[in-house]
Design a protein around this nucleic acid. Structure first.
Length: 583
DNA sequence: CGACGGTTGGACGC
DNA sequence: GCGTCCAACCGTCG
């Protein structure tokens, strides 16, 4: 598969025609860290004499926080910071091949940007539209200045397949709240049948820098991260080049394509992850979701025709397919089962998130059930620090800390466990942990999934609880995943590895892992805790229905008190009492 | 009002 | 590995 853009023959803007016409543009990179399918970059370079490609290192995200529970800033773990820096280095290299470079600045982005616009006498400001509230606020400030200074602003939607505003408008002003209705409203993306412009052969050069403080892409050490203790880091390298390489490999992998929309997959397959990990690249825009979409569409078209060697309809991609009948059948099924594409889910969450005020909170969020979650910081800490005593849960949390990535279903298990399944801790607390540690954490998708998993919105079958014991066992009976991420349990026989507290003491001794000393006892009993969660959710749902979702703070406090009283009257449901069962 | 579907539940039987 | 039952929620649609 050829690259979607050419990296050959860098050219500079010495040509008299180029020199004579055009003005000065600035492309502000935030997400969209790529050259291919980048309308903002394309527009910036069109007819411009100078183009300033800028990235601003934002202390809000990047400043080291020594008090954080793992290395990193307040809002981002070091894995994601590193992934971002790698993506920037790659972007800089690609820009250099096109006769330009990346200008890295530091500070509060809107202030830095406004200073650059003045200093460089910029006439066109280009940046990808971003739906995240943080960028929405930032963009207002920058746009206000630009309009007062007579600067043209170009801010295209290119992070998602659809423009969330269009879909909300088409749906009568509110975002569709079910995936099916979203698909109905969304239809096909407007650009789906026409080729994306993905080729940039050269860029205008960077003009004089003046007094702005420009640096190369910093290292983590230069950002102030020193003496870091963590030994294992994420195996995923950032950047557009890596993204396109992974995409190419994935698409040539028949099994992966055939499984692309299937919900299942083995969450315990950690050495060679069950899904080809592209999510962090989509998050940062190292990979264009639209380009990805077209590649997949291409594969399906080719397979459908499966008589002759695959020929790309848009003439840009050909895949090394040796099509088996099975695979063709599978793929054809997928073609018509189009609606399950993960990429469409991404747009679904982006649309709902954009159209829902306070999407990232329970209070003031019109689509969120009001539930009196507990604020038990000890249970939260046990979950966060991988010491719940349930090896399946703890192994997943270790993978989160070390890799910043876990299988989708593994995320479901730990999110369910923390909230509606076992610990009844507020989903916002879990959301914060994921948001910080995941290398692919994405504001809309992360919050959407926590709403989903906690039965606060979208999904309401709170009786369906993932078992912290049997769910993992189903996929990985030997417990290899646990042995890898929790080496303390590596010698525990498979009969006990999902429930080590049930192992006879001589077995524990032999495995060199005494439960309660080398590995914790369970913080709760799943049987009683999950029953208790169901009871609480049933009551909370009933009150939500009764009050039409309009619960005051007092209503929540009263409900919480009532739930705790009921718990006291029913000793069987009291999770903390169950300790004796586990020794 | 009732039927129906919902990315991704668990347990059990075969 | 697949079907069936369990228990039963919600929002949507007719």
């Amino acid at each position: 598969m050829p690259l979607p853009f050419s990296l050959s023959r860098p050219q500079c803007c010495r040509h008299p025609l180029t020199m004579a016409s055009g003005s000065t543009s600035l492309i502000w990179f935030r997400k969209g860290l790529r050259i291919h399918d980048n309308p903002a970059l394309e527009y910036a370079s069109k007819g411009s004499k100078f183009v300033y490609p800028v990235f601003v290192i934002d202390p809000h995200y990047m400043e080291p926080d020594p008090k954080a529970f793992t290395p990193g800033s307040t809002r981002a773990g070091l894995n994601r910071i590193r992934f971002l820096l790698e993506s920037l280095v790659d972007l800089d290299l690609s820009l250099k091949k096109l006769g330009s470079r990346l200008l890295v600045l530091k500070g509060e982005p809107s202030q830095v940007l406004i200073r650059c616009l003045k200093e460089w006498d910029v006439k066109k400001l280009c940046f990808e539209f971003d739906t995240d509230p943080y960028y929405q606020d930032l963009d207002v400030k920058v746009k206000d200045y630009a309009s007062s200074a007579g600067i043209e602003v170009f801010s295209p939607v290119s992070h998602t397949l659809f423009n969330p505003e269009d879909i909300i408008q088409k749906n009568g002003g509110k975002p569709p709240l079910s995936y099916q209705s979203f698909l109905k409203v969304a239809g096909q993306p407007s650009w789906a049948s026409s080729p994306l412009s993905t080729t940039i052969l050269s860029l205008p050069c960077v003009g004089h820098i003046g007094s702005c403080e420009i640096s190369e892409v910093p290292t983590v050490e230069e950002l102030g991260y020193k003496d870091i203790e963590q030994v294992e880091w994420t195996p995923f390298r950032g950047g557009e080049s890596e993204a396109l390489k992974r995409l190419r490999e994935s698409i040539n992998n028949k099994e992966w394509v055939a499984n692309f929309e299937k919900p299942k997959g083995d969450p315990s397959a950690f050495v060679k992850p069950a899904t080809t990990v592209l999510s962090p690249y989509l998050k940062f825009g190292c990979l264009s979701s639209r380009y990805f979409y077209q590649c997949l569409q291409d594969v399906y078209r080719n397979v459908r025709k499966h008589t002759s060697p695959p020929v790309s309809l848009v003439g840009q991609v050909s895949f090394n397919f040796s099509i088996t009948d099975d695979h063709a059948a599978d793929t054809i099924k997928l073609l018509f089962g189009f609606k399950n594409w993960q990429l469409l889910w991404r747009d679904f969450f982006y649309t709902v998130a954009f159209g829902t005020p306070n999407f990232d909170h329970m209070r003031g969020n019109r689509i969120c059930k009001q539930i009196p979650w507990s604020d038990d910081n000890e249970l939260l800490a046990a979950w966060r620090e991988a010491r719940t005593g349930y090896p399946w849960i703890d192994a997943i949390m270790v993978q989160l800390s070390k890799w910043g990535w876990m299988h989708h279903l593994a995320r479901h298990c730990v999110a369910c466990f923390l909230t509606r399944g076992d610990l009844f801790v507020h989903w916002e607390k879990g959301r914060d942990v994921f948001e910080r540690l995941l290398i692919d954490s994405d504001w809309a998708i992360n919050n959407g999934n926590w709403l989903w998993l906690s039965c606060s919105s979208f999904f309401y079958q709170y009786n369906r609880i993932y078992s912290p014991i049997s769910f993992g066992k189903k996929y990985d009976p030997n417990g290899n995943y646990i042995r890898h991420f929790l080496p303390v349990l590596k010698d525990m026989p498979k009969e006990y590895i999902y429930e080590p507290w049930t192992a006879p003491i001589n077995v524990q001794t032999k495995a060199k892992c005494i439960i309660g000393r080398d590995y914790p006892k369970p913080v709760i009993s799943h049987d009683s805790a999950s029953k208790d969660c169901k009871r609480k959710l049933a009551e909370a749902y009933a009150l939500n229905q009764q009050l039409n979702g309009q619960l005051s703070e007092a209503d929540l406090v009263n409900l919480k008190r009532k739930l705790e009283q009921d718990q006291d009257q029913e000793p069987k449901s009291r999770p903390r009492r169950q300790r004796k069962l586990m020794t």
